[in-house]
C-alpha cells in the first residue's frame, strides 16, 4: 500500500504560537520551538518530521494560515 510522506513549512514570522496546529496533529509531528520569532512567539515547527503524512489538518485549523503542506506518495 502506498504510504504518504509529508512535510510542512511554517511561515515563522506570521506564526503566533497558539498551538492549535500542535494539538490537532494526529501524528505528533508538530512541536513549539524553543526560540521565539520577531514578535516573541514560540512558533510551530516539525519536531518529528518523520511522522508527517501531509494530512493538512494543521494547516486547515491554523487561524493565521501560516502552514503550507507538501505530500508525496511512496
Amino acid at each position: 500500500m502506498a504510504k504518504a510522506i509529508g512535510a510542512i513549512v511554517v511561515d515563522v514570522e506570521r506564526c503566533k504560537g497558539c498551538q492549535v496546529c500542535r494539538v490537532n496533529c494526529p501524528t505528533m509531528t508538530i512541536g513549539m520551538a524553543e526560540e521565539v520569532n520577531g514578535k516573541g512567539y514560540h512558533y510551530a515547527y516539525m519536531e518529528n518530521p518523520e511522522n508527517c503524512t501531509g494530512c493538512t489538518n494543521c494547516a486547515v485549523v491554523c487561524p493565521d494560515g501560516v502552514i503550507t503542506v507538501y505530500r508525496v506518495k511512496q
Partner: peptide, 16 residues
C-alpha cells in the same frame, strides 16, 4: 526521503 525532495511545488497540497 529527504525533506527537500518533499517540499516542492508539485507536491504542495495546501497553501494559504
Amino acid at each position: 526521503m529527504d525533506i527537500k525532495q518533499i517540499i516542492k511545488e508539485e507536491n504542495q497540497v495546501y497553501r494559504r
